[in-house]
Simulated scan of single mutants.
Amino acid sequence: MWEKLKEIHRFMPLSDVFRDIKVPIMKIENRPLYYLGEGVLISFSERQFIVEDFNRKEVGIEGEYALNLFYFSDVNRINKHFNTLTEFVPFMSQPFIIDHEISIGNSALQVAHKLKRKEIRFESNLTRKFNNGIYDFYSNVINFYNYQLLFFSEDKQATLEAFSYTFKEIE
């Protein structure tokens, strides 16, 4: 399914995605997200838009248009990440190659080595979430191309458990 999902382009009407690729299991309440199952979510915008001088300018007609894809190997992480209380059916996540030999289950150190070996530029940083009056560690993030890889431990041996992928625009 991942190879088909990577073919989605930015602002593709979700009706086309659902017809051609996968019908969603549910819409996440109060979020512009659909759950496709097996840890995969797709986010959308109700209008297409362009960004000019740091301002969002909406174009086109109202609808639901693809923006990003999210994958989580653990359903409990979905609610924590999006701050929802949605009940998801547990699933068995199978490791798969995301891109450039990077797989779910690789350590942060392995991912960094693979990207360096292929001379792919990337950034690494830590994110925090506000919790009970303090900012707690949330994730170690590696960004490259259209990917944001999430590791939920500060340890360099932490395994890749989730990622987001921003759909490419039609050229």
Rank of each mutant, 00 (worst) to 15 (best):
M1G: 05
L5F: 05
L5D: 01
K6S: 12
R10K: 07
M12P: 09
M12F: 07
L14P: 00
S15G: 09
S15W: 10
S15I: 13
D16A: 13
F18W: 08
F18V: 00
R19F: 03
R19C: 03
I21W: 04
K22Q: 13
K22E: 15
K22C: 14
P24M: 11
I25H: 02
M26D: 12
K27E: 14
K27H: 10
E29W: 06
E29G: 10
E29P: 14
R31D: 15
L33N: 03
Y34I: 13
Y35N: 08
Y35F: 13
L36I: 07
G37Y: 02
G37M: 06
G37Q: 01
G39T: 11
V40R: 11
S43A: 08
F44T: 15
Q48M: 07
I50F: 09
V51M: 13
E52S: 08
F54S: 09
N55M: 06
N55V: 08
K57D: 15
K57S: 12
E58C: 02
G60H: 12
I61V: 01
E62D: 11
E62P: 06
L67C: 08
L67V: 15
L67S: 06
N68I: 10
F70V: 13
F70K: 00
Y71C: 00
Y71S: 00
S73L: 04
N76S: 12
I78K: 11
I78W: 02
N79L: 14
K80D: 05
K80P: 00
F82S: 11
T84F: 09
L85D: 08
L85H: 12
T86K: 05
E87F: 06
E87V: 00
F88T: 08
V89I: 09
P90V: 13
M92T: 15
S93N: 03
S93K: 01
S93Q: 02
S93L: 14
P95Y: 00
F96G: 12
I98D: 14
D99W: 01
D99K: 13
H100W: 08
H100R: 04
E101F: 05
E101M: 05
I102D: 08
S103R: 10
I104E: 09
G105C: 05
G105K: 04
N106R: 03
N106Q: 07
A108W: 05
A108S: 14
L109Q: 05
L109M: 11
A112N: 04
H113Y: 12
K114V: 04
L115Y: 05
K116I: 01
R117G: 10
K118E: 14
R121N: 06
R121D: 03
R121V: 07
F122D: 02
F122I: 02
F122P: 09
E123S: 09
E123P: 11
S124L: 13
S124Q: 15
N125V: 13
L126S: 15
T127Q: 06
T127E: 10
R128L: 01
R128F: 04
F130P: 15
N131Q: 14
N131Y: 13
I134P: 02
Y135M: 04
Y135I: 04
D136W: 09
D136N: 11
F137P: 14
Y138R: 10
S139T: 04
V141R: 05
I142F: 05
I142N: 11
F144R: 06
F144Q: 11
Y145M: 10
L149S: 07
F151T: 03
S153V: 07
S153E: 15
D155R: 06
K156R: 04
Q157F: 09
E161Y: 12
A162G: 04
S164A: 11
S164M: 09
S164H: 02
F167C: 06
K168Y: 02
I170A: 07
